[in-house]
Design a protein around this nucleic acid. Structure first.
Lengths: 194, 194, 194, 194
DNA sequence: GATGAATGAGCATTCATTCAT
DNA sequence: CATGAATGAATGCTCATTCAT
């Protein structure tokens, strides 16, 4: 990579890191572009060389951070050593919760920004086929059922863990975990005959 | 109530209804005080006779709408005719979902604004002791367990139903309901011995 | 008129006069709204209470100044005391040139802004039917011919007098006037048989 | 011309042609340097190797286009085959109008940019002595009278034909032409004895 | 010579808030 | 009590110009 190209990469990531930091402290709506470039120590115009506006920055931040999270899950969660889908999913969730607990800003950012719609877009855009990965883990061939289960897991885990991790409210994560495990097992329980 | 007092009440509720309508259509951030008073057919200054700023209005709106929702549940859900806590809770959730399906704006508003913290504040401020009401329904004496279960139910239901009702995504409410019922029953299942 | 209403009128005309002054010194394109309000000693926001943007201000300025010019012509040029259309028109033009010579800024403004299209719009919007007035003076029933002659007169006079009055270039107004008179008489000469 | 010199000439004319095209479509004020170099497929910095700023580019564009117009007149209008100055001038004007009608962009550009002052500068800078050329055609020895007549003709023709050719307003060129011819003959009519 | 990333002053516009009437 | 004209700080965004490579 040329020196110029290198410098551009540096500027880009400094902008994104700064924005991430500000979005998670002051909130997206209350973060101005002036704030970002001031913190990143750049000229205002430079921002517009890299992003069309604040919303594009947000979108790219989400994709980037989600990707990061998933990459860790795939390589570090150790889900392969478990046999049942339930145990695999719980291993994955434990890995994610661990990541989020270490990085509360990421949790805050994800919770504020990661609607199901955005999540799907991020997943679809990624080079890796995470959807198939998850379906494989669940061991399901029924596509609709698989998608609903993934949806349920993601929504329930992310919504409940937000205040638990960040505010220990209503209880702390350790106390909460058994409830969460049972929730997951409940979601994944075999379909009831109608 | 004096005529003057009456008039003030009228203005107040016109402001709140207008704001609710605008917040749920244009979004909180994109609704200006000018928008609200124009729609409510009042002078800009009048707004500041009733609210300190936009944020106070938002807060009071949340309390008001949550109260409305709960009142309906207590009087119209018919939860009393069921025997088990599971069935009672499901009856209550069905009532709420019905209300939200009829009033997607309310759903949007609640989902965007009703964090657990705000919810607790709203409940605590209310003249009615909703917390005891829910605990009674669950038939639990263990206060912590009761609060966790309520927390789980509220977070899971609200987070999953948002995109289902508003966008039929990933599936529509009818398809989703059996999954939701099983989720609730999973949450309420008797505690596993450790 | 109430005191408030009076004040508003005052602000409006101060804005318009200031803008007129700046447009004719720095030019329309190089005059910013900041310039205008700074000169008029007002807050920036005040501008937007009176005009949608710079272009609306320009449009209204044109209508206003054109109206002013015509009003003077009608009441002060003494065109009625002449018999032939030629002499009447020349009397009118003399009156206008006199006004413009006294007020070179107006000349500059008109010349930079008063295209035939804008002129027609200004005339059409006015409460007074100037078009009929001019046709009456020309003593013509043929509408097309009348409009062409008016067009010719306005374009030729305004385009030639601009640099003559403002820059005495290529000659000064006194030297130029006989040429102009003959130009007008040429334009108004009876139609040649084809 | 060396290969390098040739390349520079090519770049220069590509810049000028592109700018001309953009100025006449989007307008001078709304054309940015970025627009020009993007369209001309060059780097931004390159622009400043050829022009000091946008205004110098404009000035040089005017001179270039006026020169082009005159060159055509001299070689193609066939004015020599007429006897009287009137007929010669009308032949010249016809040639110019034909050029402008074929190239409305040029008309637009000239009309927006070609004040008498700029015109004189362009003529004076040119290698060809157009002023003498026109004087010769008019057959006049009185320098002042010649300059006034040229001034009158140029101003009247250019100002009246602009909206006629570009917008067929108030009438189209064919309808307008007899009026124009008579206007020219009026201007050139022998001086009235004072 | 040519490039294009970086700059930052400058612009139009918005809007919460105040306060004289 | 109610009004709405006035404010001006703040925001997103543009673009001519510079300069290291």
């Amino acid at each position: 990579m040329s020196k110029v190209e290198e410098n551009k990469q540096l500027k880009l990531s400094r902008l994104m890191e700064t924005a991430f930091s500000l979005f998670t402290t002051k909130g997206f709506a209350h973060t101005t572009i002036s704030d970002i470039v001031r913190e990143a120590d750049m000229a205002k115009g430079t921002f517009y060389l890299y992003f069309h506006d604040k919303y594009e920055l947000q979108e790219r931040l989400i994709v980037w951070k989600a990707e990061e999270l998933f990459r860790h899950v795939v390589s570090e969660s150790g889900y392969e050593s478990y046999d049942t889908p339930e145990d695999k999913v719980i291993a994955i969730i434990n890995d994610i919760l661990e990541q989020l607990q270490k990085n509360p800003r990421l949790l805050k950012f994800i919770n504020k920004n990661l609607s199901w719609g955005v999540f799907r877009r991020a997943i679809d855009r990624s080079e890796n086929d995470y959807m198939s990965f998850f379906k494989g883990i669940l061991g399901l061939s029924d596509d609709q059922r698989a998608e609903i289960l993934i949806y349920l897991i993601i929504e329930c885990v992310s919504s409940t863990c937000h205040s638990v991790i960040l505010e220990q409210n209503p209880v702390d994560l350790q106390t909460f975990r058994p409830y969460l495990d049972r929730l997951i097992r409940g979601i994944l329980a075999p379909e009831i005959e109608k």
